[in-house]
Structure formats: structure tokens, C-alpha cells
Design a protein around this nucleic acid. Sequence first.
DNA 1: TGAGCATACCTCGAACTGCAAGGTATTGCA
DNA 2: TGCAATACCTTGCAGTTCGAGGTATGCTCA
Lengths: 121, 121
Amino acid sequence: MKPRAANPHFMNGIPELLILSLLERNEMYGYEIVQAIRTSTNAVVAAGEGVVYPVLHALEEEGAIRSRRRTVNGRSRIYYTATRAGARRLSGLSQQWMQLTQAVECMLKGESHGASFPEPA
Amino acid sequence: MKPRAANPHFMNGIPELLILSLLERNEMYGYEIVQAIRTSTNAVVAAGEGVVYPVLHALEEEGAIRSRRRTVNGRSRIYYTATRAGARRLSGLSQQWMQLTQAVECMLKGESHGASFPEPA
DNA sequence: TGAGCATACCTCGAACTGCAAGGTATTGCA
DNA sequence: TGCAATACCTTGCAGTTCGAGGTATGCTCA
């Protein structure tokens, strides 16, 4: 068994969630997204390009985001925005995420068997 | 090469976190842990035996928990408790988790570049 | 001029985790 | 006797993150 410090936990699905959240509000390109996530989370989340680009491609193929090529300041970039389907997906993921954080918080506090959980969809 | 799963479910590391949290407080056995997690989280987290047992074995090999065999009511069970190392590990994971939830919450709210994050360790 | 850096895109393999499905054995109850 | 619940376990698959590596262009500065 290797020491697992190499691979930080809790990152499953986080890049997709944050990317959708960003693209629902602004039109952005990949490289910009990488930096935005890093700086906005104060490097708590640091999804590299090896994560962001594959997620963007998958989301586009799914129809959750749409892209167009633009050249700005002599820089060729691929800008993405969320579609309506993407907005729906984001809303579902957000809800799931909030349910999870509530459930975990309760268990960590030891308030197990707590009666008031949000109903699981 | 599936585009993307329908839902990422954000479960990476959650079982380990909850198991350590439970075992820091109570001495429990595997089958019991499976049910405790399911009922305590109102099935928001439903880590099956195929998840819990491997995690228990890995944690024990790591020295984070300790086990002893006991027979109760004619039932042979393997009871686990957290060691001091396990408690330290739990505290680290908890902190990581709380940092992450704060960072994500801020980004979802759109309060990016928020100045007041907990310093990343 | 040309070296180096930042920008901007991309892909691949390794590593890890969660999960379903399946397997064994015992106890208790109808 | 048969069936469900208890209690343990392993295996193979699938999905994700991550780092390392690759390409190409524009800027700056010596």
C-alpha cells in the first residue's frame, strides 16, 4: 500500500462543478479557467490543464456547453459558454453537492441519526 | 471512452472520512458501519460492503485503526477502533474537507477572488 | 536576432477510488 | 427444511484526477 498523500482526496466531480458554474456566468476559455479556479479558491482546488481540457471536451460532446473560436489580441482561443442543458446539469450537481456536505457535516459532528436531512432525490 | 458519467457523485474519500469519524468515537464492526453510514446520512451516502471492507483493511495496514475479534450473541465479529495515528489522519482530512467545501461554496455563489479563505496547509 | 517566457491548446498512461456482483459461513425463525 | 438476516471477503470494471509530455504562437529583452 502506497502512502496516499500523493493524490489529494475529495476532488471527484469538483472540476466539472466549478467549470459549469463559471461558464454559466461568463464566456471563458480553457487556459483562463485553469487560472480562475486556482486563484479563486486560493489554490485549495488546483485543477491542471490535464483535467480541465478533457472535462471541457466531454461537456461539449454532451451538449452542456458550446464553443466558438475567437482571436483576441492576436491570440487564438476557444471560448465556451453553458447551454440550457448545462445550466440544468449544474443545478442538479449543486443540489447533490449540498446534500452531501450537509450529511457529512452532521456525521462529523456526531449528530448521527439526525432527523432533518434534505430528502434524497 | 464514455463521454462522462451521468453523475460524478463526489464520493472520493468520503467513506474513509466517515469511517474514521465513526471509529474515533465508537468501537464498531464492518457490517455495522455499512448500516450506520446509510441510516445516519439518510442514504445520501450509501457505501456498500465492497467499499467499506477494503477501506478498513487499508486503514488497518496503515496503522490508522486496530482490530480485535470478538464473539457477541454467538456472532463472530471483527471490531475496529481508531488509533492515535488514525485520529491525526482524521483531523487532517476533516480540515481538508472543510477548506474544500468553503472554497466550492464561494465559487458557486460567484464570490470569486474572495479574500478570506482559510490558509491552505 | 534569437532566447526565453507566457500564452494556449492537446493527449497519454499511471494511479486511485467507488461500485456491483459474486462468494463463503453462521444464526434464527417459520 | 428452507429462507432471510448477519457477517465476512475478493474480483473486475468503470470513472476521474493528475503529471508529464507535446505542439505552436506572441512578447520582451538582451
